[in-house]
Design a protein around this nucleic acid. Sequence first.
DNA 1: AGTCTGTTTATAAACACGAGG
DNA 2: GTCCTCGTGTTTATAAACAGA
Lengths: 581, 581
Amino acid sequence: MTGTQVVVVPKSADLQSVIGVLTAKGKECGAQGPNKFILLNGDNGNSNGSFSNLISENKIFSSNGLVDKRLTAIKSYKECGPLDDSLTNIQWLGRMSTCTVEQHPIKPILDKDKMPVSQMLQSCNPQGDAEVPLKQPLSERPPYSYMAMIQFAINSKKSRRMTLKEIYMWIEEHFPYFREVAKPGWKNSIRHNLSLHDMFVRESSVDGKISFWTIRPEANRCLTLDQVYKPDFNPMKVPGPPAMLFFLNQKRMTNEYQNIKKTPIGTERKMKPLLPRTDSYLVPIQLPVSSSAYMPPAPSSPHKRSISRGSKKVRIAPKVPLDVLAVNLKEEEVEVPVQSTALKDSPKSAPIVPKQSTSSSRRKQLLVHSLDEEPVLLCHSNTFIDSGVVSDYSTFHDLPDSVIHDRENQSPNRELSFKTPIKSNTHLTSSTPSKPPCNMPPEQWKVTPVGKRSQTVLDFSPIRTPGGPAVTPQHDYTTFSFNSTPFKDLPLFNSPRELLTATTSRQPDYPEGCPRSGCSRELLQATGAVPTTHSVTEGLVLDTMNDSLSKILVDISFSGLDEDDLGMANISWSEFIPQFK
Amino acid sequence: MTGTQVVVVPKSADLQSVIGVLTAKGKECGAQGPNKFILLNGDNGNSNGSFSNLISENKIFSSNGLVDKRLTAIKSYKECGPLDDSLTNIQWLGRMSTCTVEQHPIKPILDKDKMPVSQMLQSCNPQGDAEVPLKQPLSERPPYSYMAMIQFAINSKKSRRMTLKEIYMWIEEHFPYFREVAKPGWKNSIRHNLSLHDMFVRESSVDGKISFWTIRPEANRCLTLDQVYKPDFNPMKVPGPPAMLFFLNQKRMTNEYQNIKKTPIGTERKMKPLLPRTDSYLVPIQLPVSSSAYMPPAPSSPHKRSISRGSKKVRIAPKVPLDVLAVNLKEEEVEVPVQSTALKDSPKSAPIVPKQSTSSSRRKQLLVHSLDEEPVLLCHSNTFIDSGVVSDYSTFHDLPDSVIHDRENQSPNRELSFKTPIKSNTHLTSSTPSKPPCNMPPEQWKVTPVGKRSQTVLDFSPIRTPGGPAVTPQHDYTTFSFNSTPFKDLPLFNSPRELLTATTSRQPDYPEGCPRSGCSRELLQATGAVPTTHSVTEGLVLDTMNDSLSKILVDISFSGLDEDDLGMANISWSEFIPQFK
DNA sequence: AGTCTGTTTATAAACACGAGG
DNA sequence: GTCCTCGTGTTTATAAACAGA
Ligand SMILES: [Mg+2]
Ligand SMILES: [Mg+2]
């Protein structure tokens, strides 16, 4: 294996060029090519979406947005190789790009621009370790957006389906902040996010009595809390926020988490304040053990922003940092769509360029790694590659229905219960179901029904998720589907993750064979049915894919792994907060 | 002619059934059928989107959501006929529906349920006229959402393209509230809305220096301020908010508006407070002259909500009330897509039913006409039908570039100028470009560039607009379009509105032949190219159309009219505020 | 009548990034 | 060239209005 190859795609690269480079690079590396390609946008995200389109239009790529606009496309076979000095011909592209291993012919790397990986890493982490923060209050606000936390919650259940109450409960359990500190309005925000983002789809049970919230399968990045936080991942003392984004290692921490899960509240370590945005854009590239690369300031203009960073009242979670997911790519799927699209789209080798290269550079959200003050951890941990067979289903730590029902009569001690909406508090109370200030018993579980297999999807909310409905053209176009969840019935993928359905003592509500993996499988579907009308379909996809490309996704490949799963033990987030300040 | 036929579509109606009814009804009415069908959702909006899907999937329909979930599909040939006692076999369906003229065979109208239109109207307006409000302060907040106002602004220019500054300026001019009363944060909200809703697309000038905001053509309902407010429309003294929604009459008030436009601020009448939501869901059906119909409370459970209605601090504009648009349907288009989709979708006459009729009834937003306290004006004005030839191009009242540039050096007197972002005001200041509390000179116009014809569209924002990208499958699928605005280059429609390009003394920046009409023309395009792959395409469309069906749209037909236009004179909104309270 | 759920709109704010001083 | 401000654009958070069960 040759590991990961990082390719920076120049501004006006067309599909043929990119495929040509990838193919050539693959041949260089051996019989089956490199395990994985990582494509980085060489245009600093200013190319009006041409790179985004390139990635999204051609389903051989899975998109990865850890570095925001620099969508990273992974052509994955196996795992990611190490990013060290064994990779030569690497260029450091400044704060907006990461590094280049092999350059596209259109824009060759100048020798003067080459830099060894070790030097990059060194320049990224000049000062070394950071100070350890002091003890902090019990519950700090987690660095995740509501959208991310809802995904954590829903994906924690094998059925990938949760009622609103369950979501509340899950979040309160795993982020005590919301139990203990947050104003009651946080539940309003949860509901707001459920409605706003169309990645969250409401289903109804067969009898129509119960509503479940699900994640559109084609949009589900299978985010789980464990995927973004690993206790054995913290030891690296880095300045800035803890390195919580951990993508390529699908291994599970079976025993540790099982134990820690039951750690009583109050014994956890300090919680890091909200991850600054820069932190969320970790590059999913393997680094040498214990080496953490920080993005240096832009070579040209450093853009220092050492201003107030702790004085803000409300910290805002990083923008779309946590749409993490693992997508499996079968090898045959890599080539087929390339051929069809490439041939159909441009008869020969007409380069595909943006219709108008004019356009400003202000794309949806370009994030600068202004590491002057807060370095960005590019990668960390040596467990990066050991994505071997690990099957600890502790990810699904939802309680059996019986347990949940038992809680109905518990009426614990906590604050925040939806009893009397308080509009009196003119300025601080929440919204609709606004509640008394605080200090109320927690939610009494009325119903925690686990609908078996309701196919009805009621609504789509206005916020698009990448790879939305238009992305999955192969459903069943011979019939109208009213109220359909277009992808719900698709045999999504006989993925290795089907082992997730293996029995565990704590997920009794999992409908056997139902959710399969629940993760996005558009890439696979793209090569399946409807071969003739493919180009038309892709044209449509193109139009729509375009929309949310600012939503950066992390697509992780763990192709060969038939044994890994998504989750980890039922942990309380605050228990794993590193000691960093 | 037999006028408009209103058909209530039952819960599980499939396309074949609906088409069958429409066809039969059309034959009843004469050689070419009725002028128009209005389809109302007979399921009170609870059908999990089956009705919405039906309407959106089959492009013979244009959707109309004035009554919220009761999407009204207009199969339009000419104009809407009167809604009076000449229409028989009408059923009153309660608060969630309006009335039924001709019932679907699946669910025939029982004789006991029939009701004459006059009685409906009478029951809708039991108490008669309302009290006239007192004088009000100079500038009241307009009853339009930011999204609506932005549409007003952009559509007021013939080029349908505006810079952010121009949008600010237009709104300040037409809604003095924002000049005089609103906190500086209102501009933040404008920007927020521009980004959030993907109906607003940012384009760049050819040189990339200037950004223009446009409305995605296929999503552009061609909303203009005059369309929702007409001075000669006010005289009807009705309780509740003024009847501002005026849809079917495309006639123009040429002279009046020209004069009123220059009325100095301070002479306007009182402004109605924000339209309550119920007011925004006016049914675009012609009523007898001077009759205003108010929706009665629900027959079953009245749901009285006579609670606080004026005590709220911030009034929220009605939800999506103003996505008004006129869509032209050519007659041939009515049948073609029906055939193809119907045949392909279900080989014979298999009824298309929701995959699961279970599902809760809580669709995106079901609005109840709880008119106990605030009756809903179903319709008003006798000008409803006179959609004859009216061509006053005063809608486009944007100033010539020269005029705008002159303003650069004006530096008027007003408040609100973006000078020093004030973060000091801990609790009340706006956001990013937060500003000093208030009372600042108004915006100094730096540049008001009017780019000629930039084809580049940079971004799509996450909020979907019905008929979004996936809705227009016929673009050009033989090539990739990077950064494309999928529909921008389409010969949208040689619509009668091309007369809008006729010269007026005040719109010098209109690129000749450029925007065509700028309004949505999906329906036309649906029958155009790509005949073979149609079913696949429609399947995709289906999936995506689904999403924003909660966004209620008003699609008005003015097929035969080669003479009407969209706009009216450059008026100041507050000048036309009726004297109602 | 009140609670809970769900959908939208409004507002504030954090932050990116480019232009220009 | 650097630093800073400002305008513009994107995204998240929060409050709230309101519908409907
Ligand atoms: Mg949603
Ligand atoms: Mg937008």
